[in-house]
Design a protein around this nucleic acid. Structure first.
Length: 667
RNA sequence: GCGCCCGUAGCUCAGUUGGAUAGAGCGUCUGCCUUCUAAGCAGAGGGUCGGGAGUUCGAAUCUCCCCGGGCGCGCCA
């Protein structure tokens, strides 16, 4: 509601300023530092003062006098040296926030356009670790926020089942451990196959380090066999990749993360997606064959870091045709041996997402999924006719990938641009985020020996290759054990199943909130102590506020049900009173969810919603300690306080659900 | 070498497009449970916003220089 109302105010001010002074201005609105100064303020008169050569305070006074009525705004006052402070109509805000909170879903302009969010995309050769979880939680939360805002979103998880990482584990099984296919298949049926591969992958890395030449040959051989889907190597690769994908699905399901489609590299190869993209790139002149220099024989995408406007691009093009001038930044798309690089394949995949490739996958259901879930996967064989139309063009694509891939992601977008799709290039959003590392103490706890250099640094890098990192399932186990102990102690009356479900919800809340409270480009130095903390700015703190509300509601329902009507007049009156300011602050917080959601989408920063949930929980706790609701003597006031807690509950539960966090009944 | 990111309280981090007295959590210290759950609340203490110059009525935020740290720049993915 806050966002809706301030948007209205913004428009009214802009129109008024245009009408009165003939000046077109984007109106800046901010939140005043104190509630006594109103709920929204604009410093626009300072800007106007410059243009009109008048004192800002005088302009502010003129505007305040002549602005007229804006729906939902009680009055506008001049403050300080020329601020315009707007005071909301508190009763009206209460009413409309109530309506908003009970509405199911918003309709939004352009909401029917398809949005793709690709996230998780873990190499299917080992167990998921904490870094992968940050990716998945960010992507999943962005999906929830977009859907809440009325957008149609499809979730894709890219599976590189034919890459070197899988090849390395295949080599581990077949060459190092000398296993047969049957043997690997049996092993794959056992629990924690992903853990087994985690260790094997680390061993393979060491094995390769012993002899670089042997490693190169083995890898090339195995990779080629996998790509061509030929022989034992390919069969084992498929068993490994498929089994581990299912492990990842189970791990992510523990965190309430699900997918619509698993898009697999093998199909991109077998259905010749790259060949189609290659033709388009050649025909359009987006890439060219380098005739000389160290990239001779390669197909190259020319690149200038700052080639943003058309002139510069033209200039680069002109130069490269008259002379095959070499640019260090140019990106090789096809190697001189004719094989395509990862960026090339990614361009093909991105073209498909936007419906620009002229090809589509076939689809089948993924066989091994967590209970109650349906996940589709690409296939090159005959597909299921009931499959959703995944090939439908997306209007916007979010790729959740860590920040180290900023440059290749830019190249992919540039590829689209050069193919004549500037719109799609602009709508290719790299939702980047920084890495999750470990604090040196945490690394030491895990038995990792720190070098003197590492011990001095604030964090230690995790490495899947080395098998060093906190596995997602281990972390969840630890969290659930810690929360279960606490729940058992506090609620011996609960049956075991309920205790477990409660502990699980709190564990998910703790972990997801922990990963979401940081903005995307903050490096998270992970530590069990922080992640296992349930106090302060945490998920459980927010959940606890909901639990308190539910306790009040339970008890309220048992006792004398108040039938007193809460009239708008009464609410307006009490909120306007001196003691009503504290209540008003909770109403305002409850009504500001749309503001947080808008900011999260505009900046692609889910942390805004996490911040919001925490602030609302805080506002409720403050209210909770000031007012004893059920013992309030005035019946109408008691009824109002109850309605207010219900409003806070609805908005907090909704905010938490956007973060993928459920609030338990008791905790 | 070139490019990108970061530097805010003891620690970890917020601080939309430049706006009023720079915020939160943790930690420290002091209080508050026979009341709707203390996974809570109140209070205290804690800052040259890395440094300097500039733009502006106004800078943590924009520009330039410097210092310190990270990442990327591969015919790997």
């Amino acid at each position: 509601m806050y966002q809706e109302l301030t948007n209205r105010l913004r428009e009214a001010l802009a129109a008024h300023v245009w009408e009165k002074y003939g000046v077109e201005l984007a109106i800046v609105l901010e939140r005043p530092p104190k509630i006594e100064m109103g709920e929204a303020a604009s410093p626009v008169c300072f800007e106007l003062a410059k243009r009109l050569k008048k004192a800002p305070r005088q302009i502010a006074q003129e505007i305040a006098n002549s602005l007229g009525k804006v729906a939902g705004i009680a009055r506008v006052e001049v403050a300080g040296s020329g601020y315009l402070n707007a005071y909301f109509d508190r009763g009206a805000f209460w009413e409309s926030t109530q309506r908003e909170a009970s509405a199911t879903r918003q309709e939004v302009e352009g909401g029917r356009e398809k949005i793709i969010v690709e996230h998780t995309s873990i190499n299917p050769n080992k167990a998921a670790h904490i870094g992968h979880v940050r990716n998945a939680v960010l992507g999943d939360t962005m999906v929830r926020i977009l859907r809440h805002a009325g957008h149609r979103v499809q979730i894709q998880n890219y599976i590189d089942n034919t890459g070197v990482q899988v090849a390395d584990v295949v080599i581990g099984f077949l060459r190092m451990e000398q296993r047969t296919i049957t043997n690997v298949m049996t092993l794959a049926k056992e629990p924690k196959f992903d853990y087994y591969c985690w260790d094997l992958y680390a061993k393979a890395t060491n094995f390769f380090a012993e002899d670089a030449e042997r490693a190169g040959m083995l890898r090339a051989e195995t990779l080629k066999a996998i790509e061509e889907n030929r022989g034992e190597d390919a069969e084992v690769a498929q068993v490994v990749a498929d089994t581990i994908v299912s492990c990842h699905l189970r791990t992510m399901a523990r965190l309430d993360i699900y997918y619509d489609l698993l898009a697999r590299e093998s199909e991109i190869l077998h259905l010749k997606f790259w060949d189609a993209a290659f033709e388009m790139l050649k025909k359009s002149g987006a890439i060219h064959l380098a005739a000389s220099g160290k990239m001779a024989g390669c197909w190259v995408l020319p690149w200038r870091e700052d080639a943003k406007d058309a002139d510069e691009v033209k200039e680069v093009k002109g130069k490269s045709t008259e002379e095959d001038e070499e640019n260090e930044q140019d990106k090789i798309i096809v190697r001189s041996n004719g094989t395509v690089t990862y960026v090339g394949k990614d361009i093909a995949y991105q073209l498909w997402k936007f419906g620009l490739l002229g090809k589509d996958f076939h689809y089948k259901k993924w066989p091994d999924v967590p209970e109650g879930e349906t996940v589709w996967a690409t296939t090159s064989r005959k597909g299921d006719p009931d499959a959703p139309h995944f090939g439908e063009a997306a209007a916007t694509v979010y790729n959740v990938i860590d920040t180290r891939q900023t440059y290749p992601q830019k190249v992919v977008a540039e590829g689209l641009r050069r193919l004549g799709h500037p719109q799609e290039a602009d709508n290719s959003i790299h939702l980047s985020y920084e890495r999750v590392t470990l604090t040196p103490r945490c690394a030491a706890e895990m038995g990792y020996e720190l070098s003197p250099d590492e011990a001095k640094k604030p964090y230690v890098e995790v490495s899947g290759r080395k098998g060093f990192g906190v596995k997602a399932d281990d972390l969840m186990d630890k969290l659930e054990a810690a929360t279960l102990g606490e729940v058992q102690q506090r609620h011996p009356e609960m049956n075991e199943d309920e205790q477990k479900r409660t502990a699980h919800a709190i564990a998910v809340g703790a972990l997801r909130f922990f990963l979401l409270k940081f903005t995307r480009n903050a490096i998270i130095a992970f530590d069990f102590k922080d992640a296992l903390s349930f106090e302060g700015e945490t998920g459980p703190y927010c959940q606890y506020a909901v639990v308190r509300i539910r306790g009040i509601r339970r008890k309220g329902a048992e006792g004398t049900v108040t039938s007193a009507a809460v009239t708008p007049e009464f609410v307006g009156q009490i909120l306007a009173s001196a003691e009503g300011t504290g209540l008003w602050e909770l109403v305002l917080a409850a009504g500001s969810l749309d503001y947080a959601v808008d900011a999260a989408i505009a900046t692609q920063e889910p942390a805004f919603v996490a911040k919001y949930a925490f602030q609302l929980a805080q506002a409720f706790n403050l209210f909770y300690h000031k007012h004893h609701i059920l013992s309030e003597a005035d019946e109408q006031k008691r009824a109002f306080l109850l309605r207010l807690t219900e409003l806070a509950e609805a908005q907090l539960v909704r905010a938490l659900s956007l973060l993928g966090i459920k609030a338990p009944e008791r905790m």
